[in-house]
């Protein structure tokens, strides 16, 4: 018995070896890693979508009533200043220890970046284009959706990239309420001094951010073919 155990090589993630990178770990715990990554992705996407859904009407309001703009930007910047580890506890009395706490908290951060993205984007639409559209008989709604929003897309997508990449990173903090996706693996790794686990989770976090970033760039290129022609 003892001979058999000694003959077996200790795996690279055993407590004795504790290597930073260990393929054996990834293989053995594939289920956990996939589950954490899926949760991470779900929380991130939900938070950014929530941010978008809230930012759009707020940006329209700020545009319609310029006096509101300073208030909207001021309040959202104030919220943005609050560290993530403090914002999540402040939401707990309302949303409990759930994924919603993380989604709403990160949605608030995304909101700040996205409201500005919408405003800067709409501002980047040339006045003469808007005038031409009005001259062609476009009503306010059609003008917004057919002319202004498409032309605002490059600036808006730039804001979405910033919001998405930072949301991926911030999702890890959700581990405070046990909904941190890959952050839960990092947390567990720190507590158990388990290097392979925390490094794998950290690398996956960065990869996820890079992949979503690339996805947004590709999406923008497909949606705004005219920007490619202008660059040529």
């Amino acid at each position: 018995m003892t001979l058999l155990a000694a003959a077996r090589e200790p795996s690279c993630y055993s407590a004795l070896v504790n290597e930073w990178w260990c393929a054996q770990y990834v293989e053995d715990r594939r289920g956990d890693i996939v589950a954490a990554t899926t949760e991470h992705l779900q929380i991130t996407v939900a938070a950014v979508v929530l941010g978008l859904v809230l930012a759009f009407p707020l940006a329209l309001l700020a545009r319609r009533y310029p006096r509101l703009e300073a208030t909207v930007l001021g309040v959202s910047t104030g919220l943005y200043t609050i560290p993530s580890l403090a914002l999540l506890p402040l939401l707990v009395p309302f949303t409990g220890l759930s994924a919603n706490t993380v989604i709403i908290g990160l949605g608030v951060y995304a909101l700040t970046v996205l409201v500005r993205g919408f405003l800067d984007g709409l501002r980047s639409v040339p006045d003469d284009v808007v005038e031409s559209a009005v001259g062609l008989g476009y009503g306010p709604t059609r003008l917004l959706f057919k002319v202004q929003l498409p032309l605002a897309l490059p600036v808006l997508v730039a804001a979405m990239r910033v919001a998405t990449v930072s949301t991926v990173a911030l999702t890890t903090v959700g581990t405070l309420v046990s909904y941190g996706g890959l952050g839960d693996l990092i947390s567990h790794g720190v507590q158990r001094n388990f290097r392979a686990e925390l490094v794998t989770a950290a690398v996956l976090c960065v990869l996820l951010a890079v992949l979503l970033d690339i996805l947004l760039v590709v999406m923008q290129r497909l949606l705004t073919p005219w920007t490619r022609q202008a660059a040529r």
């Binding site: 990173a169 903090v173 581990t175 952050g183 720190v190 950290a202 976090c205 960065v206």
Partner: peptide, 18 residues
């Protein structure tokens, strides 16, 4: 700045402490 945004603070802290 792009790199700083993509690397989770928590992850870097975890690596440094471990």
């Amino acid at each position: 700045s792009n790199i700083g945004r993509a690397v989770p603070t928590f992850a870097l802290l975890a690596v440094l402490v471990t």
